[in-house]
Simulated assay, not measured.
Amino acid sequence: MATHPHPYSGECLSSWIVRTAHHNGLKVQTFSDLSFGKHNQIWNRDIDKLAPNFVLQTMAKRSGISLKLAAKTTLNLYVNRLFPKIKPSGILRWINPLVLHHRKHTAYGMQYCPICLSEDKEPHFRIAWRLSLFTFCPIHKVMMKDRCECGASVNFHRIELGKVNIIDVAALDECLAMW
């Protein structure tokens, strides 16, 4: 039976999708193909910035939450607060860019607090961590991190990629090379 966890308060869409895939015993790409259609490639963009409406609708409907709540997992949360509108291309003021190349983040736009992740009952990334305003975690007063120990950018949506029979991952802040 499929499970559809609700997003945690402040969780970003990409993290919510990854958690939902793993809750269902699926790799992220398999879950995405089954849920959104194999012809709809969602990971070739900054999904937290440019979430297609069908993704939000699917996640909201299957999780039993409102579309409005699902939309709070995206950077649209900051429209008219930090910038006037979401631009499909280019840099958004106050948002750390991911810079995608072949579905992989090549820039260091996905920050995180290592203590928050370690204390979470279920580790998840926050949408606020994408803001360049946060250089220190407001809860733990430690510097935010934006890369794996090896120096690679954070790509938690790809962490189990190429690892046969591995779905659950130990830490979301490691890259494929660390496994």
Rank of each mutant, 00 (worst) to 15 (best):
T135R: 14
W16E: 08
F134Q: 06
P5K: 04
C116H: 05
S66V: 05
M110P: 00
N24F: 01
C137K: 03
I65V: 15
L176F: 07
K141V: 09
D173Q: 11
F36C: 09
H102S: 15
F134W: 14
G64F: 00
N44L: 01
H157R: 11
E122A: 12
K27Y: 03
R81H: 00
F36H: 13
D146Y: 05
L69V: 08
R130C: 00
P84K: 13
R81M: 06
K27H: 15
G162E: 05
L131V: 02
S89H: 06
T106S: 14
W16G: 04
R130A: 01
Q41K: 15
N24L: 09
W129S: 02
G151K: 09
N76E: 07
M59I: 08
L56F: 10
A170H: 10
F136I: 07
L133C: 05
K72S: 11
W43Q: 14
R45G: 02
Y8I: 03
K68Q: 06
S132N: 15
W43I: 12
T74G: 04
N165R: 14
L92V: 13
D168C: 01
A128K: 14
Q41N: 12
Q57Y: 09
H124A: 03
K163A: 10
H157Q: 12
T20W: 10
W94V: 03
K145N: 05
H140K: 11
F156T: 04
P84Q: 01
S118T: 13
N96Q: 07
T106P: 04
L100W: 11
E174N: 08
A128I: 12
H4T: 15
T74H: 12
N24V: 07
H101M: 12
E122K: 15
R81C: 08
K104M: 10
K61R: 11
I91K: 14
P88D: 03
W94K: 06
K141T: 06
S15H: 12
N165Y: 13
S14W: 00
I115G: 02
G162S: 07
Y108L: 06
N96I: 00
N53M: 04
R130E: 00
M110C: 10
I91E: 07
V164C: 09
G162P: 05
P123G: 04
H105F: 13
H6C: 07
T73Y: 07
V18F: 06
G109N: 10
